[in-house]
Write a protein that binds this DNA or RNA. Structure first.
Lengths: 107, 107
DNA sequence: ATAATTCATAGCCAACAGGTTATGAATTCG
DNA sequence: CGAATTCATAACCTGTTGGCTATGAATTAT
């Protein structure tokens, strides 16, 4: 059962990758060089992380001359938001059921 | 910069672990044996996953005799929800700024 | 034309993650 | 007490991951 959002969860699991995505969300489009300058890892490492983010749909790239501009695609977070919502939803549902039960016991 | 929610993201990265958490959210408290029955992996594997989930605060355990009951703690998802909110927030802010700029250019 | 810049890919390596079987501790049943 | 059950831990193996350096392709600057 390989969900499509599997890539999403896995992509966000790495702190370096999350930091890259955060920067793109905050500051908008950036070149690889700009991202590398603050990433704390080598340029090839950054490129690989960006490839992973792209595979998960979290970023898109815009080649222009010899540089590549990357930008965030926060829409890609939707499955994650859905999932957390479902989990919280299940929780509420079970909580409501308990409340119901307690109410009935009260009578 | 090792964030506390690092464990959280990493814990949710594994599909087997997510499935365990989902089951606990849906069906409530479960023993290790019950979880193992549907996990598709061995009992020790399940125990290890549960330990990881517990380390991330996603589940709590309740030892009772020779069995251990696990249950979900969806509150632990809060940092994740916060984070996605911030990312979307940054996005909106930048979007609004762009809209603003376009409006001003329009005049 | 030559040199420099920007990025992606290849190749390598150490560390980690997820799986297994084996085992042991604690509890419960006969 | 002895046997069986339930779970966690240990020991081990393998594939993956994240990092690096080296390199090459493509573009831009001199």
């Amino acid at each position: 059962m390989l969900s499509a959002s599997d890539d999403l969860f896995r992509a966000l699991a790495d702190p370096t990758r999350r930091a890259l995505f955060e920067r793109l969300c905050q500051d908008g489009e950036q070149t690889v060089a700009a991202l590398t300058a603050r990433a704390g890892v080598s340029q090839p490492a950054v490129s690989k992380h960006l490839a992973a983010l792209k595979a998960a749909g979290l970023v898109s790239d815009r080649p222009e001359g010899r540089q590549t501009h990357y930008s965030a695609r926060p829409q890609a977070l939707a499955p994650l938001i859905d999932w957390t919502g479902r989990m919280a939803g299940f929780w509420e549902a079970r909580f409501d059921a308990l409340e119901d039960l307690l109410n009935r016991m009260d009578q």
